[in-house]
Design a protein around this nucleic acid. Structure first.
Length: 875
RNA sequence: GGGCGGUUAGCUCAGCUGGUUCAGAGCGCUUGCCUUACAAGCAAGAUGUCGGGGGUUCGAAUCCCUCACUGCCCA
């Protein structure tokens, strides 16, 4: 048996247990198990940095399910891995190189990619360490990376297949361009933020009509060099007769057509719109419709190009200022207004997005989306919280083509080759045989193009592996709600398309962690705690428990590390309870096993099973906070506050049976510890090892969860003990309120309830000891009888009247006040009941039981009030 | 502009498939305790027009409508 030191030292225990678990391979599923499988594939963290509190929460959630299922008769696989995180990682490495004044071009593609691999190794090791440290029960033998050979093969295979089916195509489109990273992005990688800007009203002269202008309103004057039309709404009377004429583009002095189209919003600005097909998605559509020239004036670095004349080579924002200056000189600025609008930024790099016309690869998503939408709507896949299905549905029904090419070097290079001489296109998993005649498309694929295959590519797809057969589809995906489109939706699409199966049955969207002020955690704010430091300070279990305990399904969680006191204090409580039980058991010499169990023993077993029931229900509904709360309350309130206190008394009274008493108590404690293991794996393992003799390589990890026995839930025992608890609390209350705390005093409990009398007569010693009174007298009174005890303090709990003998030092004024307060409360309560009962509608329509209940309440309260009144008057 | 949430004790939040755990928990606060594990503890206690208004119902924190404020997602 392990020794339990006086205080629990998380750090040393954790490191030791991590080794113990790993050595014994508890987390590798048994190959020939007949047990049903349960599988989870980890959302792969990016190899760019550290795990955040959000990761800890997410991985705790997964660990809870993995450990719970493992202890509940399942063969569990939790498969770990990491994501190469294309743009994010490349940006970080480039930034690091920049500190040494090196650009990726200095190194060249091959050397640069080598550098990124080096970086990846470092961060990968770091992340793995953190995952291990938090106790994640993943199977490291199956670890994957989105760019390892198997997964790369899957990526190519999928690309080629989709290309051949015609779902993947290459085309010139306006896409979201990041001028800093100089790559295309998908719509999802663009985040919109409010920006204070200016709205410029610019006068475009009408050709051959001196002094006549059309004033357009724009936030982007610098793009005017690319204007190839001015558009108004045909219904706009202000501009009737204008369409068909021409406007003169200022500065450039070029005539461009004036067109009329319903698309133009008459309420915005002046109702006249400059049309710049190369630099605005909507304008592009308009341009196509009217066959307008598409003139690009900003290049891929965000600078003006040769079409901008004297402004060429100038950065777009600088050019804006200069263009406005020039227009002002020309007297063509009508006015400039403040204007707040939403502007797109790169999710990773933070640069302002430029709508940019370029050749990119796209996936047509419509066909893929349909079955994926159905899988969720039909309930084949379940979302928790359920409301996310609406968001999913909305996105899936309005899905747009996915731009998958990135002008980066870090990632899966597109498996397409162009023939150097005849321009043929070759798209296969294997490169062309005469490679020297071909050139591979330099672009890489969007990171998510490998992530969307993750649940099955990690299990060996496209090969028909054993893992795929055994563990796929998976049971649970736990992930952050903000990647529902990026990832969850796409995984469902890819899985259905390529494996014909759903990737997972349940999707749990975990809580978003914020700081104590409600702000998002971010590096720039410096409000993201170092998780290892928090684990060192409070213990990993404390962090895990606290996170789960504070996280009701579907909410944002305001977190600060101080809150980990909740978990730390709970761990401390557990630890001390165990130490106490062991100490008492060892101290007890008695060998008598024949002590009689009483209602408290029955009660604690009932409470345990009650707790198991609540716990199972909560876990099956993904309400982990409720599961952890159920355990917290059982262990702290029921077991420690009441049951152990009762056992102290009992053991004193039956010293010969004490050993048996405490060893039985340890059995119950063991059950609670097992239930708690999925949330707090370290301390529960340590306690499990400590409270009983175990064989050397045995572990709570592979022990069996306590099984719910509904028959052991006893409403009678729970009611009786609740009565006793309330009586005890009432007596303590009388004592403290009336400042009798230090006085022993005598108690009389009187009731008409004969089973209550019988019950209490079995346990006066508990009441006596727990309230520190010297005598308890239990009296049976007749139904209508009112027992009065002059000069005894009085209170009522349920059917029980409680009298406490006053000593000389009682304070009549204080006591009168207390009685008065209580009487006021009772009167107002009675008023509300009477009102209800006087209500014709209530009496005629409410169920009989409810009415009866109200009547009973009323008479009980009346009786109580009478008694209090007499007490009051006697003082 | 469209969609989805939230608004309950000083703070952070449970409860929300209508009527005995219905007004709760933790923290904080007050009072008394180093009581045979635990002061990271024990015991007792105070605090709320359940965002405003309207409706459905015999009965609403719980269902419906509306307004206000607030957060997120998508245009």
């Amino acid at each position: 048996m392990k020794e339990l030191p006086k205080t629990y030292d998380p750090a040393s225990v954790e490191h030791q247990l991590i080794e113990f678990w790993e050595k014994n391979g508890f987390f590798t599923p048994q190959p020939d198990s007949a047990k049903p499988k349960y599988s989870i594939v980890i959302p792969p963290p990016n190899v760019t940095g550290n795990l955040t509190i959000g990761h800890i929460l997410n991985n705790t959630v997964q660990d809870v399910y993995a450990r719970w299922k493992r202890m509940s008769g399942y063969n569990v696989l939790w498969l770990p891995g990491t994501d190469h995180a294309g743009i994010s990682t490349q940006t970080k490495v480039e930034k690091k190189l920049k500190e040494e004044n090196i650009s990726r071009y200095d190194l060249g593609r091959k050397k640069f990619v080598d550098k990124v691999w080096e970086w990846k190794e470092v961060y990968h090791a770091n992340i793995s360490k953190q995952l291990i440290r938090m106790g994640a029960s993943v199977d490291w033998s199956r670890e994957r990376f989105t760019m390892d050979d198997g997964l790369s093969k899957a990526v190519k295979r999928v690309f080629v297949e989709l290309y051949k089916k015609g779902y993947i195509y290459r085309g010139k489109r306006i896409i979201d361009w990041d001028p800093e990273q100089q790559t295309a992005l998908s719509d999802e990688e663009v985040i919109h933020r409010e920006k204070k800007d200016k709205l410029y009203y610019i006068k475009y002269p009408v050709l051959n009509e001196p002094e006549k202008f059309v004033t357009i309103a724009t936030t982007r004057p610098e793009t005017m060099f690319g204007d190839t039309a001015v558009a108004v709404n045909p219904n706009d009377e202000r501009y009737s007769g204008l369409a068909g004429k021409k406007a003169v583009l200022p500065i450039v002095n070029k005539a461009i057509p004036l067109i009329a189209d319903e698309y133009v919003d008459m309420t915005f600005g002046t109702g006249a719109l400059k049309v710049t097909p190369a630099h605005d998605t909507n304008d592009y559509e308009l341009g196509k419709k009217y066959n307008l020239e598409i003139l690009q004036v900003i290049d891929h670095t965000g600078k003006m190009n040769e079409h901008a004349g004297r402004f060429s080579g100038i950065d777009r924002f600088e050019a804006r200022k200069k263009v406005v200056e020039k227009l002002e000189e020309l007297g063509l600025i009508e006015k400039i207004e403040d204007y707040t609008h939403n502007v797109g930024y790169s999710e990773r790099g933070n640069a302002q997005i430029e709508p940019f016309l370029s050749d990119q690869w796209f996936v047509n998503m419509k066909t893929l989306a349909e079955p994926a939408l159905n899988a969720v709507l039909s309930g084949e896949i379940n979302f928790y919280p359920e409301r996310w299905t609406k968001t999913y549905e909305h996105w899936m029904t309005n899905i747009r083509d996915w731009c998958i090419s990135r002008q980066l070097w870090w990632g899966h290079q597109i498996p397409v080759w162009y023939h150097k001489t005849n321009g043929d296109l070759y798209c296969e998993v294997e490169p062309p045989k005469d490679l020297e005649n071909w050139e591979q498309d330099p672009d890489v694929l969007d990171t998510w193009f490998s992530s969307w295959l993750w649940p099955f590519s990690t299990m060996g797809w496209p090969d028909e592996t054993d893992d795929l057969k055994k563990f796929y589809p998976t049971d649970l995906l736990s992930t952050a709600p903000d990647i529902i489109f990026f990832w969850v939706a796409r995984m469902i699409m890819a899985s259905l398309e390529f494996t014909g199966k759903i990737p997972f049955r349940d999707v749990y969207f975990h809580n978003v962690i914020r700081d104590e002020k409600g702000r998002k955690l971010s590096k720039s704010l410096g409000n993201s705690p170092d998780v290892i430091q928090v684990m060192d300070e409070y213990g990993t279990d404390a962090l895990r428990f606290t996170l789960v305990y504070l996280s009701p399904q579907g909410t944002d969680v305001l977190f600060s590390k101080d809150l980990c006191e909740i978990g730390r204090n709970f761990a401390n409580k557990l630890w001390n309870a165990a130490r106490f039980l062991l100490m008492k058991k060892e101290q007890s010499a008695g060998a008598d096993n024949s002590y009689e169990t009483d209602v408290f023993d029955k009660w604690i077993i009932s409470r345990l099973n009650h707790t198991i029931r609540d716990y199972l229900k909560a876990l099956s509904e993904y309400k982990i906070n409720e599961a952890s709360k159920a355990l917290y309350d059982f262990i702290w309130r029921d077991y420690c506050d009441w049951y152990i206190e009762i056992l102290k008394i009992k053991a004193n009274e039956h010293p010969d049976s004490a050993q048996k008493i405490f060893s039985d108590a340890i059995d119950i404690f063991e059950s609670a510890v097992k239930l708690l293991n999925p949330v707090m794996p370290f301390i529960t393992e340590e306690l499990w090892q400590g409270i009983k003799d175990r064989s050397e390589n045995d572990s709570i990890t592979i022990s069996e969860m306590p099984v719910l026995d509904e028959l052991l839930i006893s409403p009678e025992a729970e009611r009786d003990v609740t009565d006793i608890q309330e009586i005890i609390t009432a007596i303590r209350n009388l004592k403290t309120e009336l400042k009798y705390a230090a006085v022993k005093g005598k108690v009389e409990i009187s009731t008409a309830d004969s089973s209550g009398v019988k019950m209490l007569n079995d346990y006066p010693h508990y009441i006596l000891k727990l309230t520190k009174t010297e005598a308890v007298n239990i009296v049976k009174k007749k139904e209508s009888e009112t027992s009065e005890k002059q000069n005894w303090a009085y209170t009522v709990v349920g059917n029980f009247e409680i009298y406490l003998e006053r000593e000389l030092l009682f304070d009549a004024v204080e006591e009168k006040k207390k009685l008065e307060d209580e009487m006021i409360k009772i009167r107002s309560f009675m008023d509300s009941i009477s009102k209800k009962l006087d209500n014709e509608g209530f009496v005629s329509k409410a169920p009989a039981a409810v009415i009866e209940g109200e009547r009973k309440k009323l008479t009980d309260q009346q009786e109580k009030l009478d008694k209090l009144t007499r007490q009051f008057e006697s003082l």
